[in-house]
């Protein structure tokens, strides 16, 4: 019997694969005999491959926000690298960083344009190809702030509270993952969402110790998450060990939304 978590021989795409969460996922997939296509801003994926000495990862740059050109770009990528078995789609985090009172309509709109439409175009293009094969697993990433509101009291001046456009777009991503799961379920393609809790990157951890303490207190485990802790949930949903899991939002939040 095949190992339940086997990724041997699988091709996985990781968009945003060199970021704080993405790099931990890319590293582990690379170690698991998967062929990884790691997308990030120009130079970043190459640097990750070089620094981490990854051997099965192909670093690429792709403009996901060019929604008109995206389908043709995906055609070319699939022709070159094969159709992925799984997709880890992290490129949809977008945030104005603005306080509610000064956020302009254009800035609000821009977050949605960056987070949602490219995600829809990417998912549809890949799922339509996967449909012919009859299998695939695609993971989108929402946030605890796609489920609950940030508590403004933990964001001290001069830091703006996590902005409204971020949470609203994350809630939309979550709903998109459910819609896609239902639409493509009969074709054997699973869509799931992961909602990370507080995973501040090392820069934020260093620069805002007060915020980190407040974030800790908001979780049942009384601590923030570390990027390697997003890896297990992602691998679980990618593999056949989750063959009957679809349309789910897997919260990885130390209990943030459970109380």
């Amino acid at each position: 019997m095949k190992s339940w978590h086997s990724l041997e021989g699988k091709t996985i795409w990781v968009t945003g694969g060199a970021g704080y969460l993405g790099s931990a996922i890319t590293r582990e997939l690379d170690a698991h005999c998967a062929k990884v296509i790691c997308f990030d801003l120009p130079g970043r994926a190459e640097a990750l491959v070089r620094e981490q000495k990854l051997t099965r990862t192909v670093p690429l740059a792709l403009d996901f926000y060019d929604t008109a050109g995206l389908p043709a770009a995906i055609d070319t990528l699939v022709a070159t690298h094969g159709l992925p078995d799984g997709v880890v789609h992290l490129v949809m985090a977008s945030s104005s960083g603005k306080r509610l009172e000064v956020l302009t309509a254009d800035e609000f709109q821009r977050t949605f344009d960056l987070a949602l439409t490219p995600t829809f175009v990417l998912c549809r293009a890949l799922a339509e190809k996967m449909k012919i094969r009859g299998s695939g697993s695609i993971i989108l990433y929402s946030s605890m702030y796609g489920i609950v509101s940030p508590d403004p009291r933990i964001y001290h001046d001069p830091m703006a509270p996590n902005p409204i456009d971020y949470g609203a777009s994350k809630a939309a991503v979550l709903q998109m993952s459910r819609y896609l799961a239902v639409h493509y379920g009969p074709a054997g393609i699973r869509f799931n969402c992961i909602s990370p809790g507080p995973f501040p990157n090392p820069g934020v951890q260093k620069g805002h110790p007060g915020l980190i303490q407040d974030l800790n207190r908001k979780t049942a485990l009384n601590r923030i998450g570390h990027n390697q802790e997003i890896v297990g949930p992602t691998l679980f949903l990618l593999t056949d060990s989750a063959s009957y899991v679809t349309g789910h939002n897997l919260v990885v939040d130390g209990g943030w939304t459970s109380w």
């Binding site: 239902v182 485990l221 679980f236 899991v245 459970s258």
Partner: peptide, 23 residues
Amino acid sequence: FLLSDASTYITGANLPVDGGYTA
């Protein structure tokens, strides 16, 4: 998965394994 160290930051969660029934 939930017993293992692959899920060290998951607690208080409900993981349906229901083929999307409740989605």
